[in-house]
Amino acid sequence: MTTLKVKIESLEQTMEALADAMKAATGQSAPRSECSFSFPSWEAMHRVLTPKRLEIMKVMTGQGPLTKREVARRVGRDFKAVHADLETLLSSGVIDRSDEGVVFPYDRIHIEFEIESAA
């Protein structure tokens, strides 16, 4: 089962994870089995992952490639609005294009974040 971990992390944390991935790719360390998508802030995450876009991701989870019309049918929304949401998810790198349409290549979504007190 492939899980996408969505998280909020600093640029430094993202760069450390990238460095680890590069080391693993060159055989210098063990590969990480985690697939993750990071946002720099809560606000940035919510600009991309709105409730309606999360609903789209949910219906696409584990389904393989789907046409945009099929995604709209599954969420019960207007094609034009779903098309715009899919384009945002595509341009953000959350979902991918395929020959058959669009695909969210994960079986699960895990959203991880922390909320700290204001200073």
Rank of each mutant, 00 (worst) to 15 (best):
Q63V: 04
V71T: 03
L89W: 06
K58R: 08
I8Q: 12
K7C: 10
G101R: 09
L89F: 06
D99K: 07
S98M: 06
I109H: 10
P51T: 00
R69I: 02
H83W: 00
E34H: 01
M22D: 11
G62N: 10
E112A: 15
S10Q: 09
P51D: 00
M60V: 12
M15Q: 14
S33F: 06
R53Y: 07
E114M: 15
R108T: 09
V82A: 02
E87A: 13
A24W: 11
E116I: 12
E100N: 12
P65L: 05
L86A: 07
L4K: 11
P65H: 03
L86H: 00
L86E: 07
E12L: 12
A44R: 11
D96E: 11
S98Q: 01
G101Y: 09
W42H: 15
V82P: 01
L90R: 13
R73E: 05
Q13L: 14
T14A: 15
T2I: 03
F113T: 14
S29G: 10
T3H: 04
V103C: 07
P105E: 03
E9I: 08
M60Q: 12
A118G: 13
L89I: 09
S38I: 03
W42Q: 14
Q63D: 07
T67Q: 03
C35R: 05
A119E: 14
K68F: 07
P105R: 09
M45P: 01
D85M: 03
E16N: 13
A81V: 05
I56V: 07
A30E: 15
P31V: 10
R77V: 00
I115E: 15
T26K: 09
T3R: 13
K58F: 07
I115C: 15
I109N: 03
E87Y: 05
H46M: 06
E12M: 09
K5D: 02
D107R: 09
P65M: 06
F113E: 12
V103G: 13
S98Y: 01
A84L: 05
E100W: 03
R53D: 08
E12T: 09
I56K: 01
F79K: 00
F79H: 02
K58P: 06
C35E: 05
T67M: 15
R74I: 10
H46P: 01
G101S: 13
